[in-house]
Nucleic acid binder design. Structure first.
Lengths: 191, 191
DNA sequence: TGATTTTCTTAATCTACATTAAGTGCCTTC
DNA sequence: GAAGGCACTTAATGTAGATTAAGAAAATCA
């Protein structure tokens, strides 16, 4: 069973016909590392589901500093929710960090599916709820934890990403400079 | 028409019968300033919709420092989404800042309504999407803006709250100490 | 394969914001 | 209407994390 259907059936049950209908609305593509699936200023037309590889979303502040909003690897969804909802130009980039196979669901097909398979409203509601809770926790962590605590939490939460993603990216995700993350790491090792 | 129905019909259309059904699932209560609708460690059983007055949600770090997650005034929803979804004890407090009338929708009634009025899946999906986008922006702001920029943005975004909520609360929301917010304010005034 | 770019490290210096402390005015509550 | 408690201000001092810089290691590329 395709990974994306496994993902959906975690929360709702589809009939074989519905599964086929869903799959027919999905386009799957391969992307090389460093390719951009979405550029800042573009309207986001798709939700992306990662079958393999790694993506990240980030923005760029004052044309200088990058800030990573999210990583997505196998089994994760990613997109620019603001732009996707409003169909206005967003300020996020979505980039491939490691060669990836990505299932793409267009906004139109998604809306169409809501009509043809109303249960999917429930699925995407639950997906969004879970995502919201994660952002909420991350926000509170940024308000209340030190950089070191945030780093330790990241390591526990995403042990596989630590192996795969450069320190620079992780620094950006937890909200410190790469220099400071490097310093923290050696401090933690010395313990 | 009750405020809560106005809120819902911004995104979906209900028949008069559905409106009545919805209202029958809602309990409305008055709360005095300083009362707690939810305590840390409790399971959150309701979504709260504010008809009048002001609420806030916050957590307490290491039994010392409060961090405001959200304010809610007239026409806003508030709750502990983590606890509400998982029905596990959360770490948020929900407190009344200004005497309030609150419409309460219990988790069970909400689930029941999803069955009886499937359109409500759509409504709460949209509500959750919008809330997610707001958290996402706030997170990025915390990663990339200075305290002063965050304060200015807050003033523009919630001009009415500036009047009604103490500086201490606003400082906590934007992630600085009350002393530093006070200093920033006088700095901005001098300009 | 070597050349070039990018990442990572270390260290010195700097700064935005926290902490501590003390004083003022206002709001609550008896 | 006194008294105690909060919210707010101001200022001195402290510090987590940024910035700058420069070299080493690793990855990319021709």
């Amino acid at each position: 069973m395709p990974l994306i259907l496994q993902n959906i059936t975690k929360h709702i049950t589809l009939t074989p016909e519905e599964e086929q209908l869903f799959l027919s609305k999905i386009e799957t593509h391969h992307f090389k590392a460093k390719s951009l699936l979405l550029n800042s200023g573009q309207v986001c037309k798709h939700s992306y589901f990662v079958n393999s590889g790694i993506l990240r979303s980030f923005n760029i502040n004052d044309n200088i500093v990058e800030h990573v909003l999210n990583f997505a690897c196998e089994g994760w969804w990613i997109g620019d929710m603001y732009s996707l909802i409003s169909q206005k130009p967003g300020n996020l980039f979505i980039e491939v960090l490691e060669d990836a196979e990505v299932a793409m669901l267009s906004k139109e097909n998604q809306e169409q599916l809501y009509i043809e398979i109303p249960k999917l409203e429930r699925f995407f509601r639950i997906l969004t709820e879970n995502s919201l809770v994660a952002y909420q926790e991350r926000l509170m962590d940024n308000l209340s934890l030190s950089a070191e605590e945030r780093f330790e939490k990241f390591c526990k939460k995403y042990p596989s990403l630590i192996q795969k993603v450069s320190q620079k990216q992780i620094a950006s995700y937890i909200g410190v400079t790469p220099e400071f993350l490097s310093k923290m790491k050696s401090r933690l090792l010395r313990k």
